[in-house]
Nucleic acid binder design. Structure first.
Length: 439
RNA sequence: GGAGAGGUGGCCGAGUGGUUGAAGGCGCUCGUCUCGAAAACGAGUAAGCGGCGAAUGUCGCUUCAUGGGUUCGAAUCCCAUCCUCUCCGCCA
């Protein structure tokens, strides 16, 4: 959340931020509640101070008669205080609910607008032919190429790497099963990515795939986006939509020391999202599903180094794409398109020649202190003061779309798929994924 | 799943209704001592919110797992929830 002090003291900044997101928020209501709350708080505090004094006097009373007299005198004050305290509690919780609805402030340098206003800042093809645009290009500057290869869902089905029908039979629409070299390839991708991040200095974590409500509030997913989550009946537990949730909450309510920072974690998890997508083109193949695998990076930093970390996190994610030899581009999202908790986001998209579209495989964001406020992530700074951390995360990468692009880019006419060099040692030094026809 | 014990400051740990934000110890910081260090000694050492102030500040309130309740007053009594530990049962 953003601090009440920011809303109180820099109201116009907050209003502008909402406008940039093309949203409205209950700012007036918040300011009004805040004013009321503080007035009430002063009354309550005075009442409590009186009660405290009276309590001391009662404790010291010499005779039973004195004591009873003092208690009688205190009784009416206690009733009044009760009433004020319950009013305060109500206003506190409603103010808190309102604050949880306010998104993070987008970075002022973001392009204004929605999805269509994203800027293309980089485009490349594997380790070669990378082009960095010193002046970002608009999406309109590029024409979408038509599909130029067999789509991965056909490759997967025809050569036995992906069994869609059996996945649907067992678990329903959008679920699939990977088989043989398809399943082995996914495992290789996960292992290789984790190893690469390890080389980049990330500490690997294996978190729970199920979290409590408070953890989802911490990252900003709840209370607003409950309809995109899978909740577990008869419990306070939810399936995680991303490893970001358990990892970001690791240090909840702790005060870290500045010398520990930055902390960089990587993790593999399955991710579960109940997204509302229309059947057909959108969900064709393994581009979108209720369950997908992802390797995620999460970073905790001091506030003065988070923007620098955003760039290095982007480079780490790009390293994965480059080493796999994929064609990719990097977008800087516009103010109206970044996520609720983010202040700035880069998307890495890879080219899917089979479906003729760019697929997002990584979203790299700086959340500034927004999640840290919600989750109580703090550190003791060099000068001894306690400050909120900044959190960042980025996928490194989403597995199914990466796999899909590899299938489409590397498939041979006989159904074999050339394995990117970096992955071969993870697959027993095989050079090709080998089709299975007996399905 | 059954039986029991327990959750107090960065850590250990006292405290069973009234000057307890909380004894004592450890750790940490500063000082004395020392050529320096150790030891010893002395002092300090929570966070959140709010009032006042231009400000170093200062005053107040809250917090003893969490949420309710009893009471003039709760770390202390009652209820619920969460978590930890021990024993038994079950189990990949």
């Amino acid at each position: 959340m953003i601090g009440i002090k920011t809303i109180r003291e820099q109201t116009s900044l907050v209003r502008d931020a909402l406008k940039a997101r093309n949203m409205t928020g209950p700012i007036d209501e918040i300011l009004e509640s805040d004013l009321k709350r503080r007035a009430l708080l002063v009354e309550v505090e005075n009442g409590r101070a009186e009660r405290k004094e009276a309590g001391k006097a009662i404790g010291k009373a010499k005779t039973e008669a004195d004591r009873n007299e003092l208690i009688a005198a205190q009784r009416s004050g206690a009733d009044q205080l009760d009433e004020l305290e319950s009013q305060l509690k109500n206003i506190d919780s409603s103010l808190n609910e309102l604050l949880l609805e306010i998104p993070n402030l987008p970075h002022p340098e973001l392009p204004l607008g929605g999805e269509e206003s994203a800027e293309v800042i980089l485009i490349g093809d594997g380790m070669n032919n990378e082009e960095l645009f010193s002046t970002p290009k608009s999406l309109d500057d590029f024409t979408i190429e038509p599909a130029s290869s067999i789509p991965h869902w056909d490759i997967g089905r025809d050569y036995g790497y992906i069994d869609f029908e059996r996945g649907v039979k067992v678990s329903g629409s959008t679920f699939y099963m990977l088989r043989s070299d398809g399943a082995r390839m996914q495992r290789a991708l996960i292992n290789w990515m984790l190893d690469l991040h390890h080389e980049h200095g990330f500490e690997e974590v294996y978190p729970p795939f199920v979290v409590r409500t408070e953890s989802l509030v911490g990252t900003g997913t709840l209370p607003k986006f409950s309809d995109t989550l899978f909740g577990i009946e008869n419990s306070d537990l939810w399936l995680i939509p991303t490893a970001e949730v358990p990892i970001t909450n690791m240090y909840r309510d702790e005060i870290l020391d500045h010398a520990q920072l930055p902390i960089q974690h990587s993790a593999y998890t399955a991710c579960f999202r109940r997204e509302q997508f229309s059947a057909g083109r959108e969900v064709r193949g393994i581009k979108r599903g209720y369950q997908f695998d992802k390797v995620e990076m999460v970073v905790f930093t001091r506030e003065y180094e988070s923007w620098k970390m955003l760039e290095s996190l982007l480079q780490n994610a790009l390293d994965v794409v480059r080493k796999l030899g994929l064609r990719y581009r990097v977008l800087r999202l516009a103010s109206g398109d970044i996520g609720f908790s983010a202040s700035m986001t880069y998307d890495i998209e890879i080219w899917s020649p089979g479906s003729g579209e760019w697929l997002e495989v990584s979203s790299v964001s700086n959340f500034t202190d927004f999640q840290a406020r919600r989750a109580g992530l703090r550190y003791r700074s060099e000068d001894g003061s306690v400050k909120h951390l900044h959190t960042l995360n980025g996928s490194g990468l989403g597995i199914p779309r990466t796999f899909a692009a590899i299938l489409e880019q590397n498939v041979l006419p006989d159904g074999r798929v050339r394995i990117p060099t970096v992955l071969q040692s993870y697959l027993g030094n095989q050079e090709y994924l080998l089709p299975v026809k007996s399905v």
